[in-house]
Design a protein around this nucleic acid. Structure first.
Length: 459
RNA sequence: GGCCCUAUCGUCUAUCGGUUAGGACACAAGCUUUUCAAGCUUGGAAGCGGGGUUCGACUCCCCGUAGGGUCACCA
């Protein structure tokens, strides 16, 4: 595939606006995009809206914005509904040269015509070379004289595709495997109109865990790109994952930017077998992308997503900005997708920064303790130790330095658990030193003496 | 059912005749200052079956088997 000797590469993605942007469509678009960019070619986006019944402007809009959000910018744009004259021309020519004819029909379903344009099938074997699968042969006899247009003014899919690919000088047709059986039909039409046969590359399908094609009917929201956009995935992470569904660079690298993939992409390394969509791996890849983001982006994104929390909105909790700032890194290491920030808050994982914890003396006491006496003693001792720390020296390291010797001599769990619980009110939370820095000296001491009171009442 | 495609750990995959079949996700265990998260270390985990070809097959060929795709006046 040398750039110098071959003519310019032209690829196209041809979605039909009969549904929202499907992740399979996004992946196929990516592969087309990569192939074009890799070889300095042209990437055409063509909306196949010849089916006026099912196509809508909303779906078209959804597909366009989704692709743009992903960063898969096209070089040229067409809409089949605006190219009617061209198809009429070809249909007429085909009828004239005998490769198609008007056929009288008996409608069997509502909406069917009494006359349609059928292709005069030469009934032959078609063999084409697929960049991914190698040689594929079909006998077209079973296709019969298939319908290519309802009328000369109303072309059907196969005709429109072949005409457009020809007119647009498409050199490589990269599409889903589900189109492989359409290929012989389209080659037949190409031969009838004297079009050059493009190279074909049929991509393996993305399937579910039971290896069935991902479909909107069966899988619902998981197939819509929008779902991932709303859950806060990074567009580039999505692209990264899509690229790996059916392709690999040949070494162990797994995380790359769109530019990096473009550099190393090779369509000949595309897999033949279908690939199971695994959201867990997607999340891992997304997290890897998050880790590579600049800190200021991370900060502002996390704040954005915190603000979407219903827990904060509805319950009107008084949020201390300083504390929020301090939990950002803690939130960050717990998420792999932005949307999880909101979830975490809504699930109450960070309630300790939003409100005063509630708990019993039993909760406060380390599992090894027989009664509350030791716990009370530890809390009292720690209060004294912490009180001595000056306000401006209130850091996790300092707090730990002060408390640690005592914890070691008295038993770490026995001392640390009660402190942590008094500060968080939860079975699971960050460590007590981190907690203390988030809350600040004043609030920390307040919560510790509250714990003290609870223990005393218990005695 | 016809036609077509596919077949390595649970999943994504490396291997382009000779490897202790490698990596990643997930999982398990351990470590890391009590719980959690993160991190680190370790571990379990695969060539669908049967024939060939070959000195030698995961790799090439054939036959099965299994899975998938497609069979519209949709795209």
């Amino acid at each position: 595939m040398s750039k110098d000797t071959d003519k310019k590469i032209v690829v196209r993605m041809a979605p039909s606006p009969t549904g929202n942007l499907h992740i399979g469509t996004a992946r196929t678009t990516l592969y087309n995009f990569l192939f074009a960019k890799k070889y300095g070619g042209k990437f055409i986006l063509r909306i196949e809206d010849t089916d006026k019944e099912r196509s809508t402007k909303e779906f078209e809009e959804n597909i366009l914005t989704g692709l743009l959000w992903l960063g898969l910018q096209h070089d040229e744009f067409y809409r089949q509904s605006e190219r009617g004259d061209i198809y009429v021309d070809y249909v007429k020519r085909m009828i004239e040269n005998g490769s198609a004819y008007i056929s009288k029909e008996t409608p069997t379903e509502p909406g069917q015509r009494e006359s349609v344009v059928r292709f005069k099938n030469p009934n032959k074997k078609i063999t084409f070379n697929d960049l991914i699968r190698g040689e594929v042969t079909f006998d077209t006899t079973e296709l019969l004289d298939f319908v290519i247009a309802r009328s000369p003014e109303e072309p059907l899919y196969h005709l429109a595709v072949v005409v457009d690919d020809h007119e647009m000088k498409v050199t490589h047709v990269i599409r889903g495997d589900d189109h492989i059986s359409n290929t012989p039909r389209q080659i037949l039409i190409q031969e009838a109109i004297g079009a050059k046969r493009p190279e074909y590359a049929h991509l393996p399908l993305i399937v579910d865990s039971s290896r069935a094609k991902l479909s909107k009917r069966k899988h619902g929201a998981v197939v819509w790109l929008d779902t991932y956009k709303e859950e806060g995935y990074q567009p580039e992470a999505l692209l990264n994952y899509f690229s790996l569904l059916g392709w690999n660079p040949g070494d162990d690298r797994e995380i790359f930017t769109l530019d990096e993939i473009t550099q190393i992409f090779d369509i000949l390394r595309v897999q033949k077998g279908s690939a199971v969509f695994d959201v867990l791996k997607l999340k891992w890849i997304n997290k890897e992308h998050l880790k590579r983001l600049p800190l200021d982006v991370v900060n502002s994104e996390i704040k954005n997503w915190i603000n979407k929390s219903l827990r904060i909105k509805n319950e009107g909790v008084d949020v201390d900005e300083g504390r929020i700032e301090k939990i950002i890194p803690i939130i960050f290491e717990r998420i792999s997708v932005w949307g999880e920030v909101t979830q975490l808050i809504d699930n109450g994982e960070f309630d300790y920064v939003l409100r005063t914890p509630k708990y019993t003396a039993r909760d406060l006491t380390w599992k090894g303790e027989k009664d509350f006496a030791n716990t009370l003693r530890h809390i009292e001792r720690v209060i004294i130790l912490l009180t001595d720390i000056p306000e401006n020296d209130w850091t996790a390291d300092k707090i730990k330095e002060v408390v640690w010797p005592y914890a070691e001599s008295e038993g770490k769990g026995s001392v640390l658990w009660p402190i942590r619980y008094a500060l968080s009110g939860m079975q699971k939370s960050p460590d007590p030193f981190t907690l203390a820095t988030i809350l600040g000296k004043e609030e920390t001491l307040k919560r510790l003496s509250a714990a003290n009171d609870i223990l005393k009442n218990e005695k």
